[in-house]
Design a binder for these strands. Structure first.
Length: 293
DNA sequence: ATCCAGGCCCGAT
DNA sequence: ATCGGGCATGGA
C-alpha cells in the first residue's frame, strides 16, 4: 500500500481485497452518494470525502495525507489483512466460496457509534434508499455544513448534544414514524455521556449486547449491527430477513429455521469472524435474491 | 390500489 | 420461551 500526494489529491496504490462500490453498497453505511462508477461522495467522521477507485488505485480528492492516514485508512479498514480472514472462513466451509469470490472487495467500515446506532434504529421496517433519506434529513436538520460537491450540499451527522435537543415530536416531523420515541430515548442517552463507544471498552460481547438492548427500539439485530459496524466486534452476526433466508437456503436445505438457531449456528461455525461471513453472505445473497420466492 | 420493507414492542399463550 | 398483531411512511 503506497501513499503519495498529487496536487490536492492523495493517492493510494496497490490496494487489494477492496472494492469501493461493494463496500459502500452492501447496507452497512447510509451516507454515500454515487457520482459515477466507482466514484462516490462519502460523509463520515464530520468530514466530506470525494473518493474514486481505478482498479487497485484509490484517489482521495482535495484532502490531506494526514486525514487519509488518520481518518480514512482506519475508516475503510485498509490496514487489515482480509486475505487471512478469507482463508480462515474458507477453511471452515466451502459454501462461502462463491460469496467470497463474488464479493471479494467487501470490507467492514469502522463508523462512528452514534451515527450507526441512530441509523440502524431507523432501519427497521425500511428499505435502504429510504433509510439513506432519513439519515440525511437528520443531518441537514442539525448537522454542520461541510461543503458542496457537484452542486450538492452535504451536512455532517449531528453531535450527541445536538441530537439530544430533539424530541419525539421533532423526530415525527422528520417523518421517522413509530421510531420517533426510540430515537428520542437513544439521543437522550447519547447526550448524557453515559453512552458512547468508550462505554463498551472492556465489556464482553454479551455485556455489550445487553447494554445496547436497554435502548428503546434496539433489538438483537440492531445491536449486532452497532457492534459490528461501530464497536469493532467482528464476531457479531446480525440476522435480518435476508440473512435468515440466505442461511436457510445455503445451510438448511431451504427449511424454515428460527433466528435463534441461526445465531447459534453462526457462532459455532464462523466464530470470531462471523461478521465478515455475514457481510459476504448478505451482499452476495441479496444481489442474487437467494431464497426469495 | 394493496403489499411490504436490513424489526421491535407488547400482550397472549 | 415463543408467536403474532400493530406500527408510520413511502415506493413498487
Amino acid at each position: 500500500m503506497k501513499i503519495r500526494k498529487e496536487k490536492n489529491n492523495i493517492i493510494i496504490e496497490e490496494i487489494t481485497d477492496f472494492d469501493l462500490e461493494q463496500t459502500l453498497e452492501c447496507g452497512q453505511c447510509f451516507r454515500f452518494y454515487k457520482q459515477e462508477e466507482q466514484d462516490y461522495v462519502i460523509v463520515a467522521a464530520k468530514r466530506l470525502l470525494h473518493l474514486q477507485q481505478l482498479d487497485k488505485k484509490l484517489i482521495f480528492y482535495n484532502t490531506s495525507k494526514e486525514d487519509v492516514e488518520r481518518i480514512w485508512i482506519p475508516y475503510f479498514d485498509l490496514k487489515r489483512d482480509y486475505g487471512k480472514i478469507k482463508r480462515y472462513l474458507l477453511q471452515q466451509d466451502n459454501i462461502l466460496k462463491e460469496a467470497i469470490e463474488e464479493k471479494q472487495g467487501v470490507r467492514i467500515l469502522n463508523q462512528e457509534f452514534p451515527e450507526v446506532l441512530i441509523s440502524f434504529i431507523i432501519s427497521q421496517n425500511k428499505q435502504i434508499p429510504h433509510i439513506k433519506q432519513l439519515v440525511r434529513r437528520i443531518s441537514e436538520r442539525s448537522g454542520t455544513y461541510l461543503g458542496e460537491i457537484n452542486g450538492e450540499k452535504y451536512y455532517s451527522f449531528p453531535e450527541a448534544e445536538e441530537l439530544a435537543k430533539m424530541t419525539e415530536r421533532d423526530f415525527r416531523e422528520m417523518k421517522m414514524g413509530f421510531r420517533a420515541p426510540y430515537l428520542e430515548d437513544a439521543a437522550k442517552k447519547l447526550a448524557k455521556g453515559n453512552l458512547s463507544a468508550e462505554t463498551f471498552s472492556g465489556l464482553s460481547d454479551e455485556e455489550t449486547m445487553n447494554k445496547l438492548l436497554e435502548i428503546k427500539g434496539v433489538g438483537k439485530k440492531v445491536a449486532n449491527c452497532v457492534m459490528l459496524f461501530s464497536l469493532g466486534r467482528r464476531g457479531s452476526f446480525p440476522i435480518d430477513v435476508w440473512i435468515q433466508r440466505i442461511m436457510e437456503t445455503l445451510y438448511f436445505e431451504g427449511n424454515a429455521v428460527s433466528k435463534e438457531k441461526i445465531a447459534t449456528f453462526a457462532r459455532e461455525h464462523y466464530g470470531k469472524y462471523g461478521g465478515y461471513a455475514q457481510q459476504y453472505l448478505f451482499c452476495f445473497g441479496k444481489e442474487k435474491k437467494i431464497g426469495r420466492n
